[in-house]
Amino acid sequence: MLEAHIIKKRDRFTVDVRLRCPAGDLLVLTGPSGSGKTTVIRALAGLEPPDAGYIRFRERYWFKATDRLLLKARQRRVGYVFQEHTLFPHLTVEKNVAYGCRDPQRVAELLAMLRIRHLAASRPHEISGGERQRAALAQALATRPEVLLLDEPFSALDNQTRHRLRMELKRLQERLQLAVIMVTHDPDEARQLADHHIILRRGAATEPDLKKGRLSMLPGSLPA
């Protein structure tokens, strides 16, 4: 279970979000541009420290403001996929996937699982946007993360590819029992994928959402 209360001051408002995502579930963060979605996901990854609150995975705190505890990104077990340009341009697809993983068998498995084995020797600029995001997903999964963070991973893709990748993501998430937090602008994507759904407006979750009978998020509903 990933649990967090993230408070981060921004120029015009303060992001103040509580979230909870059990392993094997997918939590979708939606909201207008500049509402704080990326701030939340970057805080979870360890790329931007929150000003207050906590982030806890299972029994281990990744961030706890009261104890001044802050684990670096490389100390958390997360995979992260950006909207685009996630792959290292100087490496082949195979070496990109192997970047954080020294197990060649794991790399081969992921290349097969994401159906990009035939692209192993290609450079990122030589493959399509959909293939790049597949490779990025394989790269993120190679370190055996327990939490997968996706920041609008499919937004730069055409409709058909986006739909296909959504289905693959859902399958992977269920197979690997990962806690997945995903930022998206696309309401269809949210409806199709979300076990839990948080809608952010100016840094606050304004619409608690019930889905599949589970309470995804309510301000103040979690123990601090």
């Binding site: 990854a45 790329l47 670096k72 490389r74 995979g79 992260y80 340009h85 954080g100 370190t143």
Partner: peptide
């Protein structure tokens, strides 16, 4: 160099020294 590449290397477990040799210099 796109800062996201450095952040990605960090998330993937690289130390600052490894980021320097494996990402910054080759790019």
């Amino acid at each position: 160099i796109d800062r996201r590449l450095l952040e990605m290397a960090d998330v993937l477990g690289s130390s600052p020294m490894a980021v320097f040799f494996r990402v910054i210099l080759p790019n």
